[in-house]
Design a protein around this nucleic acid. Sequence first.
DNA 1: TCCATTCTCTGACTTTAGTCAGAGAATGTT
DNA 2: AACATTCTCTGACTAAAGTCAGAGAATGGA
Lengths: 299, 299
Amino acid sequence: MDAAQISQVRRFNRTVTERVGVLHDHYLGRDRPIGEARLLWEIGEQGQDVRRLRERLGLDSGYISRLLRSLETDGLVTVEPQQHDRRVRTVRLTNAGRSERAMLDGRSDELAGSLLEPLNTAQRARLVAAMAEVDRLLTAATVTLDTVDPGHPDAQLCLRFYFSELQARFDTGFDPAQSLLPDASELRPPQGLFLVARMHAEPIGCAGLKLPPDAPAEIKRMWVAPHARGLGLGRRFLAELEARAARHGHDVLRLDTNKALGAAIGLYHSCGFQEVPAFNDEPYAHHWFEKRIAGPPSR
Amino acid sequence: MDAAQISQVRRFNRTVTERVGVLHDHYLGRDRPIGEARLLWEIGEQGQDVRRLRERLGLDSGYISRLLRSLETDGLVTVEPQQHDRRVRTVRLTNAGRSERAMLDGRSDELAGSLLEPLNTAQRARLVAAMAEVDRLLTAATVTLDTVDPGHPDAQLCLRFYFSELQARFDTGFDPAQSLLPDASELRPPQGLFLVARMHAEPIGCAGLKLPPDAPAEIKRMWVAPHARGLGLGRRFLAELEARAARHGHDVLRLDTNKALGAAIGLYHSCGFQEVPAFNDEPYAHHWFEKRIAGPPSR
DNA sequence: TCCATTCTCTGACTTTAGTCAGAGAATGTT
DNA sequence: AACATTCTCTGACTAAAGTCAGAGAATGGA
């Protein structure tokens, strides 16, 4: 990796942990330990199951329990068994807890303000823009692509969003019964595979790949959640699927798409796909693309 | 302050403390407490006085003393009285300490690498550029402008750099004896004032202001250290001097400059200075500027 | 020379942030 | 009904991080 890049990243880390990190603890930990403050924050307005809090904060169950006890004796939260499964307990903010959380919220604003405050208008605008960029890219870097069974709940969730988005965006609406939908078994080894993209363990996108023995590999059902767009995830899916197809001995990758999906069409072009004549009878397709890809590694 | 800006800054803070902060502690605190690791780092290759370490890290003297004792028994540092003042003690790394520090250095590189690693080439370049921008602007926000006596060591240091830079950049070189140099007393109340810009307590720039009773206020000896350029410091000096001049009842601010100082000339133009005929006989000046400024606050 | 100040250190604390091993209740599985 | 599993909690620890009050040595200034 480029040494100049590394050293710039290190300078950034240093500046930011000094300026932001220290202030963060100073502002947030003013009248209660930051552990408690973070927990109070993470509970949120609607309440949370203890189990989820533990996952999110990555803390020991004994430790969390003790923190909750302390918030409870301060009258900031109530802890009650969940209705459906009485082993799980749900934490909710009391009114006092809500106002304490609002105060933390205000502190966070203060902290943000204190970073901007010494700068002039032009500098503020540039700082905020650069922060947005750093934020986006660091977030993008935490996205994982995992191979899952198409029947997995996360896969099913993505597919439901995918279909409802097609329904909303196609001029004609979208009726799965009309479309050439691959059977789930076609996107499951050995006939294919299915990827789910996750950010902080939440599913945020999916893509399927058909790997027929005597025909080109084919991409199906690629979707990225609206709030995760602009992170280069589409491009990453394409690169990953291309590599997987090549590894399975395919040298052509293809896909079809609808004219309403302009951003996707642009993406295919910029990733080296060529438009070709229709290679199937998909009624919802207006464009068909193909790309020659490298064969499997030759050793 | 703009609410959208505040919330972007908050998102940034959150992402960065999660991604960078947590990794930072994880990488650095791998085999010794982060307090010790930070201290080891801060001692540096040349060693440091205990007093400075305390300032830099903002820790209690008892606590630092205990940390040093622990590093000392591990054979990583030696602590000895300073030559000139035997109350002060100086900490130096042993060879073992040096190699431990080098390992921390390697870890910092690893951490930086792990942030870039999941990204493609284009994304890396964008992330690094955005980080550089954030770094620069957050750093700029920590710069203070302090009024000092022109005889103060920090002022003198800046002036030496200033003169040697003029010597290097003017076609003709620069000989102070030829120039209309204000006497130090002219840049000291009540006849004037002298500002030093400091970053982390290090002087990084200066500017003088003459306030003659019956003539326009005049800016002299404005200089910014090369490594601190691009932080908007020149603009900040001008704004500050303008405010000070106005506060002392002046309504015109002027200055002269040499044609070799192109960036400065651009700055004067963009800050509302107008070029005017020569108002003095400064042999090194090619351009003279003037700006009408607001009088003192009228209440 | 005396006295105030500066600097570092030690001893005696506290708080925070955890870890680990089990207990006990509820639930799911056979 | 028996058994394994899941979930939260308590008790008993530990390590890190820090605070506070002075003691003692060195220095600077009157």
